[in-house]
Write a protein that binds this DNA or RNA. Structure first.
Lengths: 198, 198
DNA sequence: GTCTATACACCGATAGAC
DNA sequence: GTCTATCGGTGTATAGAC
């Protein structure tokens, strides 16, 4: 079918655009990323971007939606014999590895402007709420089995894990060049759950 | 002395400008903060800003220098009978409290543009290196007395504490409205050093 | 030194030819 | 649907009157 093929091409290009957006969001952040940057990175004209996405905000939202969807899939695909704590650690580990590969952090704590527009994006909010609900269940389950601190509100634990997925310590440690990616991720996961105390 | 008085006024205005910059950096971030914003907040004309500071970058650098200097003073003023670990915790607690009062986080992990320009600012780099050296001594001392994990590189510990001082968890928890400022800060310090495990 | 006015560059978004 | 060209708006920084 010819039509289906064209549509496929269209989708493929949209995906290529989101790849570029992801790269640029990670490198420069939302505020400093320009539509010229995106167009140049993809190798198309700036005007053509607007045939795929209505605005810069919706472009970023689409990129973050794709990544959140991916996270939900990873979480769903984890071996079912893992404990809740192991699942949480695996998800955090995966998010940190993705960042080292050039992905943008989940929580766009970088730009207030982006945060505002995202909260008005229904698709994004739905996805975040879904991910949030699943992680919350894991946190509570881990607390019930005693592997996570019962005396901490589950919100505190959940937010702390979220924050760790976009922790700048990752870049700091990479900049030193003293540790490989595996060690860096391991240090972050370890200090998150076990703390710094001796 | 007439000249000294005028000079004093000039310094006072510079300080008022830095207050405004601090507020705006915390609220909007460097990229979204405009010189118009700063001028409006201070209540002077935009052109007058450039009589005090050469550029937007030097304006932000001056604000961050002032805050770093303050941190060094706080650290120096801590009771000498505190253990190294207690000093580190007290400094982190102070930084988080300052953020809740509207101060900008130490590490401007928000803006890549600002990071770059700061690394070229000699005054700022000197101050950061001084603070860094003092904190590093505390970390190593705490490791030697066994109150911080000896098997972690001291860099990992130091960067983790830095990152916690600008952790977005603070805003997340405040947004819920379920905890007062004291509790919020306590949760952050506690999870940083003791982790999330049960 | 402080103001108003403006130069100059850049960005998001659109128009119109093909 | 992709391109080039451009509009409208905004931001940093400066010029010039007072």
């Amino acid at each position: 079918m010819r039509l289906s093929f064209k549509k496929q091409q269209f989708e493929a290009r949209a995906d290529a655009i989101l790849d570029a957006v992801n790269l640029l969001l990670a490198k420069k952040g939302f505020d400093l990323m320009t539509m010229d940057d995106v167009a140049a990175e993809v190798g198309i004209a700036k005007g053509s971007l607007y045939k795929h996405f209505a605005s810069k905000e919706s472009l970023a939202a689409a990129a973050l939606c794709r990544m959140t969807r991916e996270t939900i899939e990873i979480l769903a695909g984890l071996a079912s014999d893992l404990t809740p704590l192991e699942k949480l650690k695996a998800t955090l580990r995966w998010a940190l590895e993705r960042r080292l590969q050039g992905a943008v952090p989940h929580l766009p704590s970088t730009s207030v402007a982006l945060q505002r527009s995202l909260m008005l994006n229904i698709s994004y909010v739905r996805l975040i709420m879904k991910l949030n609900a699943e992680l919350k269940l894991l946190v509570i389950a881990a607390q019930n089995e005693g592997s996570l601190d019962r005396s901490l509100p589950h919100e505190v634990i959940l937010y702390t894990i979220y924050a760790r997925s976009c922790d700048p310590t990752l870049e700091f440690l990479r900049t030193t060049g003293r540790y490989n990616d595996e060690q860096t991720v391991a240090y972050l996961v370890r200090t998150c759950f076990e703390g710094l105390n001796g």
